[in-house]
Design a protein around this nucleic acid. Structure first.
Lengths: 251, 251
DNA sequence: TGTTGACCTTCACGTTACGTCATCGTTTAT
DNA sequence: ATAAACGATGACGTAACGTGAAGGTCAACA
């Protein structure tokens, strides 16, 4: 697919001026120019613009974005993973702010009092972000994005490896669970493997593991509509299936 | 409490230059100046800065913020309520972006293909407005996902006592709901008590409570067949009844 | 007592990521 | 043929500060 400057702009929700500016600073150049000077954007440019907008959404300066995507060791997938974790912390920050506003509302009604520190909770994105501001630039230049994310997660209590592992496990569980449900046998090897994976996944969140608690959790998955909704999205009846499989797994 | 310019800056997470700039444009002036010219900020200024930062967080230009807070009919409480709903929309947009990144990751692994339109979903803000108009599916995704996320997080840190309490509440809710449905009046004392219990029960799963979300959840109970099935077992029409009662409860 | 270093002041220029004309050529529809 | 829509290139404007420079103030320490 080929796009004119305004078509691409509309598609991506940016102005044509923006695209011309990106061309000017050699951040995103059109595939080619027609004889009449018109810019023509192709598939590659569409995808690159998407990448750029992801970074921009994280408030990264365009110069830094340029460095990133021009970098020798730029790993697109790694970058996307990093976007994910940043978006998640952004969401947490918004939750903090929502909390703050709710408290402020109550405070203005005289239902509670807030310390001056509390009044600004959620604005200054705590030590993690300050850390990023301080050292982020240099670290990023030297080691790329992944390292920054890594140190962030460390501050949050989990190592990046743990976090990644947990995320990966979660995806694996869903994938295998789906297949196992299709096969239909809770005592099958695959189903038991899902149970083992689930136990491993739990170990990232639970301090003390016990069979009873694990079984109780899967029972909860069945009983509690909210958990059930989650598992219904993985596969129909997967909550019950997981509980049955876990019953076998825990003997 | 009185603050110097840097103390207030540190407290609020802004630079002293910012505070001087706000003074310059008469957005936020210090309470007074000492003989030596030093700026002194007091309690009123602290609270005003908080308000300003709320607006700034919504990407409102400082000139507009100035107009707002100088306005004759400026209602602080109303403004806070508006912040809340805007923050929620912002959260929704981030969820969209997260969705986009996740899809992009899968696409880059060849697990699915994305249209060019899909690649820019979540960037354009006008999509938020569209989403706000679409009730059914979006509500399920937004509230449903948030519910599941919050539940999972919180459950991991629940003590057995808390879990028991939540379960007990759940049973109480079902008991009383059944009786209330039989009586038939959603505004009855019993029905309102059910709502209060439900709110209490939610507090075991939701990190941040809000009337809107609570009401949205009960609407979800009605619209989503999976949730509805759960409530149909309690009593016929109890999902609708709970929603109607909650509408009264939340005013 | 002098000096150091942390804060404070004002003044002023620099920056980023575009918005917004102005002026012009090109293409398409009527 | 003429208008409307679209494209191009300057060039200037802007918001919200960042970043010095040049200098006054203040507590503490030698």
């Amino acid at each position: 697919m080929e796009y004119t400057i305004n078509q691409l702009g509309k598609l991506a929700g940016v102005s044509s001026r923006t695209l011309r500016y990106y061309d000017e600073i050699d951040l995103l150049s059109p595939k080619r120019k027609k004889r009449n000077g018109y810019r023509v954007y192709g598939q590659k440019e569409v995808d690159l613009l998407q990448q750029i907008l992801f970074y921009r959404e994280m408030d990264m300066p365009l110069a830094a974005i340029k460095q990133m995507i021009e970098s020798e060791n730029y790993d697109r997938l790694e970058a996307l993973q990093s976007h994910l974790s940043k978006l998640r912390s952004k969401r947490e920050q918004i939750d903090l702010l929502i909390d703050n506003v709710e408290k402020t509302i109550m405070a203005s009604k005289g239902e509670l009092t807030m310390s001056d520190e509390e009044k600004f909770e959620g604005f200054k994105q705590n030590m993690i972000d300050e850390n990023e501001k301080k050292y982020g630039k240099e670290i990023r230049e030297n080691y790329g994005d992944a390292t920054v994310d890594a140190s962030r997660e460390k501050l949050m209590g989990m190592t990046p490896d743990q976090y990644e592992e947990a995320q990966s496990l979660s995806r694996q569980i869903n994938d295998h669970l789906k297949k196992a449900v299709e096969q239909g046998d809770p005592s099958s090897e695959l189903a038991q493997k899902v149970c083992a994976l689930h136990k491993e996944w739990l170990s990232y969140y639970w301090k003390h593991y016990s069979k009873e608690a694990h079984l109780g959790l899967t029972q909860l998955y069945v009983e509690d509509p909210r958990f059930k909704a989650y598992y219904e999205e993985v596969a129909e009846g997967s909550a019950e299936f997981l509980r049955d499989a876990m019953t076998v797994y825990c003997q």
